[in-house]
Design a protein around this nucleic acid. Sequence first.
DNA 1: GAGTTAACTCAACAATCGTTGAGAAAACTT
DNA 2: AAGTTTTCTCAACGATTGTTGAGTTAACTC
Lengths: 210, 210
Amino acid sequence: MPEPKTSAPKARRGRRPGPSTTRQAVLDAARARFASDGFAATTIRLVAADAEVDASQVMQFFKSKDELFAAVMAVPPSALERFSTAFEGPDEHLGERVVRAYLSAWEGPPEESEPLMAMLRGAIVNDKGVGQLREFIQARLVDGTAKSTDADAALRAGLAASMLVGVVTGRRIIGVPTLLNTETEELIGILAPAIQQILAPNRPGQSSVR
Amino acid sequence: MPEPKTSAPKARRGRRPGPSTTRQAVLDAARARFASDGFAATTIRLVAADAEVDASQVMQFFKSKDELFAAVMAVPPSALERFSTAFEGPDEHLGERVVRAYLSAWEGPPEESEPLMAMLRGAIVNDKGVGQLREFIQARLVDGTAKSTDADAALRAGLAASMLVGVVTGRRIIGVPTLLNTETEELIGILAPAIQQILAPNRPGQSSVR
DNA sequence: GAGTTAACTCAACAATCGTTGAGAAAACTT
DNA sequence: AAGTTTTCTCAACGATTGTTGAGTTAACTC
C-alpha cells in the first residue's frame, strides 16, 4: 500500500518550484517496486504514485518500462567489488569468502541488494531480465572471477554462482521456512566447505577445520 | 509457435462428436506453455488456441487462470519418487544419487519435467506459484527426504535443494553459457562431492549428538 | 424419443496496461 | 524581459487481458 508522504493536497499543474529531484525519486521507487514485486506486478502507474508523479512523467524520463527496468538493474560497483575481491587471496578460506560475499551482497543495504533482487525477481518474466541476469552471472560472476582462462575454473565458478544464487532465491524470494529460520552465520558454516569443494577441489580432505 | 494439428477448417458451433479429450488437451497445452513461457506470458487465449478450443471453454473446465496453473503444477508421483528414493541407501554415494535425481527430474520426459519447469518459471510472478514452490521444496524436498526429525538434517536438505534448484535454473531458465555447454555427467562429477559435503559432512561417524 | 446434462463457440464487457499528445508552469538562456 | 527548454499534469487512445452470458450441438438418462 503506497501512501503519499504528505497528505495529498492538490496536484499542481506545471513544473514544480525548486530543483528537481523527481528523476531520482522515480528511480528509487522503481527499484524498490521491481525488487519486491517483480517485473509484471510493477506498473508504471504504481511507480509514479510512489514517487508522487504522474505516470507520463516516468515515460518521459525513461523511454519505456523496459528501459526503466534496465536502469534499475544496474548493479552498483560496490556490489561488484564484493564478488571480485572475494576470489582474491589464498585458496584456504576461498569458500567462506565467496559464500560471505554472496550472502552479504543480497542482504546488504538496499542500494546494493535491491538491484540484485530486482534482477532475480524480474529475470523470469522479462526478456531483457533473463539476458541481463545471464550476462551478469557469466561476465561478472564467472569470467570476472576466474582469473585464468581455464575452462574448468570457469565452469566451477559458474556452478558456485548458480548454487549460491539458488540459496539466496530460496531464502529471500521463495521463503523456504527452513532457510528463513536459520542465522546467516550458520548457513555460512555449512555452505563454505561445499563451495570450497567446488572452487578448490585439489586437496579433498583439507576442508574441515574443526 | 502454436500449430494447429490440422489446418484449421471451420469452427463447428456445438459439442463435438465422439468422446471428449479436450480437457486433457487443454491441460497439456497449458503445461507446455507455462513451462516454456511462464505465468504472465501464458494467456488463456493462447492455451485455448494450442488446444484448438475457445477460450471460454478453458474457463469452464478450470475456473480461473490461477486454478489452471495450480492444476498444471501438480508434480507427478514418478518425479517425487526420484527424490525420495535418492535419499535411501548408504551415505557413501548419497551426494551423487541426489544430484543425479535432481538433474534427471528436470531434464527428463516432459510429463515429469514440465510441471517442475512451470513451477520454477511461474513461481516468481504468481502468488500461488511462490507458495506452491515453497511448499514443494519444504515438504517434498526437505521434510520428505530428511529421515529423522533432526533440525540440522532438514537444514542441510533445504540447502542442497536450493543449490541444486539454482543449478537447474541457471542451466535451463537463465541459460548461463558455461553451464549450457557442459555435459550433464561432467556437472554431476563436480556437484556430487559438494552435495555430499552438505548432506553427510562428517566422516568420523559422528551423527549429530543431541 | 423426450428431457437433462455436458461440451462447445460467439460476442462482448470491464478492467488494466503501456503509451502518447496537448497544454501549463517553472527554470534556464540570452 | 523575452524566448527557449525542461519538468509536470490531464485526458485519452489502443491493445490486451481474464472473465461472463447466451445460444448450439452432441452425449447421456429414463
